[in-house]
């Protein structure tokens, strides 16, 4: 008999139960297995009713974020052996309503993404046939880091501000706004600032910094938010001291 490890999974079946409860399973402690492999082992061979989201299993689709031993993680990149001898506790991402088992509700996040206008805004609109917008590697480097977000929402699960006030736009959406602001091809900074300079925008953040700590793609949303605060402050002073400068 190969070595095994105990995995405690939060189960919540809204049609049967009022409250989530932990259920324990024994799974093989295979050194190549990640937590997601163990969940699939349970689903395939022990209990087909266990529900969770997953897809690419290579850390880029952003589906499989869950809470592993209290920490938000991409379960496809979290090895079982790291937690040996166990047990490992797997729960849904914190700060979101739970739909079922390990599946959380994320339409709120999608609305927030859309609210920051994450697309190129241009005052002119040159036809693509005229050629590419020139952008040097240095200009690309300005925003590249903020473009790496896979929308896994692990930063929201780690953010106490979002946990306490779900109105807060949150780390990933603000980082995405900043990604476009810093893109040399974009001219929409002012439009986005109007959304984000509100109370639930950047000012909700008090620099806890956990979003950056937990980000599996090194996006540094905390950095994006602080940059944004600086930009918003400059903007405010400008419009306060020189009201005529604003169009």
């Amino acid at each position: 008999m190969a070595e095994t490890i105990t995995i405690e999974v939060a189960r919540y079946r809204p049609e049967e139960e009022g409250e989530p409860a932990l259920q324990s399973y024994e799974v093989p402690l295979n050194k190549d297995w990640v937590v997601l492999d163990a969940l699939n082992h349970i689903k395939d061979h022990v209990d087909g009713s266990l529900s969770f989201r997953w897809s690419c299993r290579m850390g880029v689709c952003g589906s499989c974020g869950m809470t592993v031993n209290g920490e938000p993680k991409l379960t496809c990149a979290t090895f079982l052996s790291h937690y040996a001898p166990g047990p490992i506790r797997v729960e849904p991402l914190k700060n979101f309503p739970v739909v079922r088992d390990l599946v959380i509700e994320m339409t709120d996040f999608l609305e927030k993404l859309q609210s920051v206008k994450p697309w190129i805004v241009r005052k002119d609109d040159p036809a693509p046939a005229k050629g590419e917008f020139l952008q040097t590697p240095e200009q690309l480097d300005e925003f590249k880091q903020f473009s790496m977000c896979i929308n896994c929402m692990i930063c929201y699960a780690a953010c106490p501000v979002y946990g306490l006030d779900p109105q807060f736009v949150g780390p990933a959406a603000i980082a995405l706004a900043q990604r476009y602001n810093l893109d040399s091809r974009d001219q929409g900074e002012q439009e986005r600032l109007d959304v984000l300079s509100q109370h639930e925008g950047i000012w909700g953040c008090t620099f806890v910094g956990e979003c950056t700590e937990v980000c599996p793609k090194n996006v540094d949303p905390a950095g994006a938010i602080q940059q944004y605060k600086l930009a918003a402050t400059k903007d405010w002073f400008k419009s306060f001291l020189m009201p005529w400068s604003k169009q």
Binding site: Y12, P14, E19, P20, K94, P97, V98, E105
Partner: peptide
């Protein structure tokens, strides 16, 4: 009708 569970902080 979904019945979401909101974990109490």
């Amino acid at each position: 009708h979904p019945k979401w569970h909101r974990t109490r902080v």
